[in-house]
Amino acid sequence: MSTLIEVEELKKYFPITGGVFKRKTADVRAVDGVSIGIVKGECFGLVGESGCGKTTFGKTLIRLYKPTAGSIYFNIPTNVREEIQKLRNSSQDSSRLKKLRKQHDLSIFKGKKLKRLRRKMQIVYQDPTTSLNPRMLVKDIVGEPLKVQGLTRGAERRKRVLEILNKVGLTERHLYRYPHEFSGGQRQRIAIARALVVLPEFVVLDEPTSSVDVSVRAQLLNLFQDLRKDLGLTYMFVSHDLSVVECISDRVGVMYLGKVVELAPTMELYREPLHPYAQALFASIPIPDPTKRKRRAPLKGEVPSPINPPRGCRFSPRCEKAIDICRREEPRLIDVRNGHFVACHLIS
């Protein structure tokens, strides 16, 4: 049960320019201080509504965006980890810390180091129609990562491409075709093949089943499970579909307005959410059982803008149980029992 990825106070802001000289007027605080750890081999579910920052977090994690602040450590040995922790806690601005960070902290990698990192982390997008280049053949789409990373040549590359295509359920016949000649489910398989051809360790799945039919959805979810076992992958499954996340994830984190508000093993979270937002979220899911109809909508109001998040706890304006401290101080994400983390003043 080793930690594969360790994230510390990750922030990603997008500047907004305004005025005649296009100066920065404000920031969209998409991810505003997230600290979590992802265990090797697990499927980590990340849920939340639109605008909460989950997609941005996933993409920042694999360095598609450059983080505004914070650190990301990928598969570093425990002793290095401990040393960094010690140095940080002593809050000395030591050169040793800087050196260690330069060596291990993903958030500041650049150039060749960053390129080599891409081999280990990949992403599968939501919409397979737009995530595949319509002017490229399947064999080129899936072969490109190998080519760019300089991993194989010629016949060897073709072999690898065929291997991975077979693993996702496609055959040699499909090599010389354009994406538009396939159905939605097949296109998503091509996208998965592209992500996995370099044999990464960590894959971010950004709502991979939202744009496909219900029947195809189940096929793809089964495929994800099989591939995880077969290739020893670690997933981060980002989605707004709570029922799908429930079935595939080992642990689930709930995000609201750029921060993680609750994080727990799936069964425990779905059975007993502790954070008021998580409670409202789960209570809002329509249940396919007409005897269990809801009387009222569990949550009123709308998500505030990430440009100017509320002071104190971000959920406090909409929280029915908010108390005085909630509006002043932001609660921290703490382990309340056995790996069940909550960021709420009422609980801690």
Binding site: I62, L64, K115, R118, R119, Q122, I123, Y125, D127, T130, S131, L132, N133, P134, R135, M136, E144, P145, V148, Q149, A191, R194, V198
Partner: peptide, 25 residues
């Protein structure tokens, strides 16, 4: 478009992204 971002995620250089992914489209 997503596939341009996907190309960057794979590690393509700027030149390759422009010539191989953006221009043909």
């Amino acid at each position: 478009e997503d596939y341009v971002e996907a190309a960057k995620a794979v590690g393509c250089s700027d030149l390759r992204v422009i010539v191989r992914h953006i221009l043909p489209n």
